[in-house]
Amino acid sequence: GIELVTAVIARLETPTTDATSTAPWRLHWTNAGHPPPLLARPDGRTVLLEEASAPVLGVDPALARTTATCELPSGSTVLLYTDGLIERPGEDIGRGLTRLRQHATALAREPLPVFLDELLTRMSDRQQDDVAALALRVP
């Protein structure tokens, strides 16, 4: 049978290491049916990166995939995560995404290990699904 897989495929573009460079960091991504990445800016504003949706992997390799790009401000955090972080049985997934944004807003200025640990603690529940999360902080 055919295996279908969801994924976010992302590429980080970093500026040159030249001390005079003012080029921004950029994230390029496509989303194949996965929960959207979250961008938490240092001022607490959060954005779900919902552009660039594409078919799940395994459907048809000939299908076109769109990509999106956004600038990553200094001090911002990019969070990639599995659906177990936001899904609750019997609850609309939109509520889980709202909860994620609220907690990320509150934690946006914390050091990265605190941001991630506290986010996982605040988002967890008793009947927890497997959760994987990866966070990146722009210098």
Results as ranks from 00 to 15, higher is better:
residue 132 A to G: 14
residue 26 R to A: 02
residue 93 I to L: 15
residue 117 D to R: 15
residue 47 V to C: 06
residue 79 L to P: 13
residue 6 T to Y: 03
residue 117 D to E: 13
residue 59 V to A: 11
residue 34 H to T: 10
residue 136 L to G: 03
residue 12 L to P: 02
residue 129 D to M: 07
residue 66 T to E: 12
residue 43 D to K: 07
residue 131 V to Q: 07
residue 62 A to C: 03
residue 83 D to H: 03
residue 88 R to Y: 04
residue 70 C to L: 12
residue 31 N to K: 10
residue 106 A to S: 15
residue 94 G to T: 14
residue 35 P to W: 15
residue 46 T to S: 02
residue 24 P to T: 06
residue 60 D to R: 14
residue 64 A to S: 14
residue 107 L to A: 06
residue 33 G to Q: 02
residue 43 D to F: 08
residue 37 P to S: 08
residue 2 I to H: 15
residue 56 V to D: 02
residue 14 T to K: 14
residue 9 I to V: 15
residue 48 L to F: 04
residue 111 P to C: 03
residue 79 L to E: 08
residue 14 T to L: 14
residue 83 D to E: 08
residue 121 T to D: 12
residue 39 L to R: 15
residue 127 Q to D: 15
residue 17 T to D: 10
residue 73 P to M: 10
residue 1 G to Q: 10
residue 59 V to R: 12
residue 110 E to P: 00
residue 19 A to M: 09
residue 67 T to D: 07
residue 113 P to N: 08
residue 119 L to A: 01
residue 28 H to D: 02
residue 9 I to P: 00
residue 26 R to P: 00
residue 81 Y to T: 09
residue 53 S to R: 15
residue 5 V to S: 11
residue 42 P to V: 01
residue 12 L to D: 08
residue 113 P to A: 06
residue 12 L to M: 14
residue 75 G to Q: 05
residue 81 Y to W: 09
residue 26 R to S: 04
residue 69 T to G: 01
residue 39 L to E: 04
residue 30 T to G: 05
residue 56 V to S: 11
residue 16 T to N: 07
